[in-house]
Simulated assay, not measured.
Amino acid sequence: MHDLPSDSLALVLLVFVLGLKHGFDADHLATIDGLTRYNASVRPRLARFCGSLFSLGHGAVVVAIAVGASLLSQGWAAPEWLESSGTWISITFLILLGVLNLRAVYAAAPHEMVHPVGLKGRWVGRFGRVTHPGGVALVGAMFAFSFDTVSQAALFAMAGVQAGGWMPSAGLGLTFMLGMLLADGANGLWISTLIARADATARIASRVMALAVAGISLLVAAWSLVRMLAPALDAWGEGKALFFGMAVIAVIFTSFLLGLRLARGREPALEAPG
């Protein structure tokens, strides 16, 4: 828990940014992409809200775990091996996600949009083709039962206990859910817009975003690996989690704007008779 600030305002801001960053996880993007595409033809009005519903289900489990862990954690401290093993698992998954999304970009045909690739999406099976709001939220809840999400919820529980008990833990969980809701909700709306367009703008924007997600996954994995192996750099990065989280969000947002700008710049040439 050494990366969490002791100041209450800074802690809340950091947890919110972590929620935003978590919402841009490749697994979230890939699953919301699939849910939105399936509902675009079956229930178009639901399609645009798939990201928000997914995030609400996911966040509800995070809050429940944070509250439950805070009630059970009086006098308990997380073992040191938990943080190190969690970091190695995160590095492995980030590298896989980065490589798979790079492969998706280069494997897509010129006339196709790039679909983000996730690892957890294969677990949901037929639940990835639900057409009920509660079913979409259930898929999000299922995604919360993973090592990285549970470990983050436990982290909020520990911080909440130090701040006074289960209520601060619940507040941190809700703050995390709010950040994630903004990211996932925006992603669902964006995907539904790209599906509706299905033109050059959609194809180019999807490629730029996929490259950005892949690049960030690999960079975050590299940074985590270097911090594990270089104590001096790890000490330098202490207390800068908020800065790095905001930098990741800024890169993704900039990539989105860049994708739209590049697409609009090429539209006349692509639409010209020839």
Rank of each mutant, 00 (worst) to 15 (best):
A200K: 10
P116Q: 04
A210G: 02
L218K: 01
P168V: 01
L182C: 13
D148F: 11
D184P: 02
G188Q: 07
F127G: 07
W166C: 10
F145T: 11
D199V: 14
A202M: 03
R207M: 00
R207I: 00
K120W: 04
L219D: 00
P116R: 05
A163G: 13
A205N: 13
A221G: 01
L219E: 02
L138Q: 01
R207E: 05
L219G: 10
H111F: 14
G188L: 09
L225T: 06
R203Q: 07
A210P: 00
S217T: 02
A196T: 12
V220H: 03
E112V: 15
G185N: 10
L174Y: 10
S151W: 07
V220K: 03
A221K: 02
V136A: 06
R129C: 05
G164D: 03
S217W: 00
S146Y: 01
T201D: 12
G173C: 12
A159V: 08
A154G: 10
S217M: 11
G118R: 02
N187G: 06
K120H: 14
L174N: 06
V114I: 09
F145D: 04
L155P: 13
Q152W: 10
A221P: 01
T131L: 07
V139K: 01
R122W: 11
G165T: 05
W190H: 06
A212P: 03
A157I: 01
M142S: 09
Q152S: 12
S151R: 14
T175C: 10
G215D: 10
T201Q: 15
P116A: 08
A153W: 04
A214H: 04
M167G: 13
K120I: 15
G185C: 09
G135L: 09
L138N: 03
T175V: 04
M167H: 06
A144F: 04
A200S: 09
S206E: 12
V124A: 15
F176V: 00
A196C: 04
S192L: 05
L182K: 05
V150W: 05
V213A: 13
P133L: 15
L181M: 12
D148T: 05
Q162H: 08
R122F: 14
L172M: 11
L211S: 11
